[in-house]
């Protein structure tokens, strides 16, 4: 038995800021994506996975950062994230923080693009000393975007690739993500409560183009002043 809700195919987006090929950052995200997709398929859900390799659109990201021009490669990445039911975001750590490429990409996204979307946060580094970057910095960044980060963070320093505990954490994070994607939380928040969040005209990756007439500012546009007599 499939209800109408479960019949809807799910979209999973992988964002990787890895710069080498192959990249351990991409590998970590890919393994989590593979596990999540397998769990969802096992539950009878169709999953389409799109990968955004930030390396391939690094020039677009820079152009948007310094000139606000959104080129087609970046536009496509925004569309993928805007349509995603779940996201896995993975970055290398070089200097005690997410890489500049990763944060630059986040900087050029609309603030409302990821509202309520479940996200697995992942990072790789050359040393275990960077292990808290995910919880300490990435989680705050995605909280600002009002995304729903899963409880389990993924982090892999070189020695972790030989440790079965990494696979356990990947499985755990993938399970959490799959559960949140299946629940339809993001869709319901966006369908039923979208207007309760702050939006700018043209935001949400260019999809936020409805115009509300019944607002104080719209009334102010038609004469009068913003002054109100003080309440007694």
């Amino acid at each position: 038995m499939t209800s109408p809700v479960t019949a809807v195919p799910l979209k999973l987006a992988v964002v990787s800021a890895g710069t080498s090929d192959p990249s351990s950052t991409r590998l970590l995200a890919g393994r989590a994506a593979g596990r999540a997709a397998a769990l969802l398929s096992g539950n009878g859900r169709t999953v389409a996975t799109d990968v955004v390799e930030l390396r391939e659109i690094s020039a677009d990201i820079t152009a948007a950062l310094v000139t606000q021009l959104v080129k087609p490669g970046l536009r496509q990445a925004m569309t993928i994230l805007g349509e995603a039911d779940g996201i896995i975001a993975s970055t290398p750590v070089y200097k005690a923080g997410p890489s500049g490429l990763f944060t630059s990409f986040i900087d050029v996204l609309d603030n409302d693009l990821l509202i309520a979307k479940p996200v697995v946060l992942a990072a790789t580094a050359g040393t275990a000393r960077h292990a808290l970057v995910v919880d300490d910095q990435m989680r705050a960044m995605f909280a600002y975007l009002r995304a729903l980060t899963v409880p389990t963070s993924l982090f892999a320093a070189p020695q972790d690739w030989g440790d079965p505990a990494l696979t356990e954490r990947i499985d755990r994070a993938a399970f959490e993500l799959a559960l949140l994607m299946e629940s339809g939380f993001a869709r319901q928040v966006r369908d039923q409560s979208w207007q309760s969040y702050q939006h700018e005209y043209g935001s949400a990756g260019g999809t936020q183009t409805s115009i509300e007439l019944d607002t104080d500012l719209m009334r102010l546009a038609t004469g009068g002043s913003a002054w109100r007599p003080p309440a007694n």
Binding site: L217, L220, A221, G223, G224, S225, A226, W227, R228
Partner: peptide, 26 residues
């Protein structure tokens, strides 16, 4: 934005009414 909207509401009147009484927020 409210500043711009209110200011123009006043400007519009100043050019159309010889004598203006006005109370605004800004």
């Amino acid at each position: 934005l409210p500043l711009a909207l209110e200011s123009y509401n006043l400007l519009h009147r100043l050019w159309r009414e010889d004598v203006v009484d006005w109370q605004g927020k800004f």
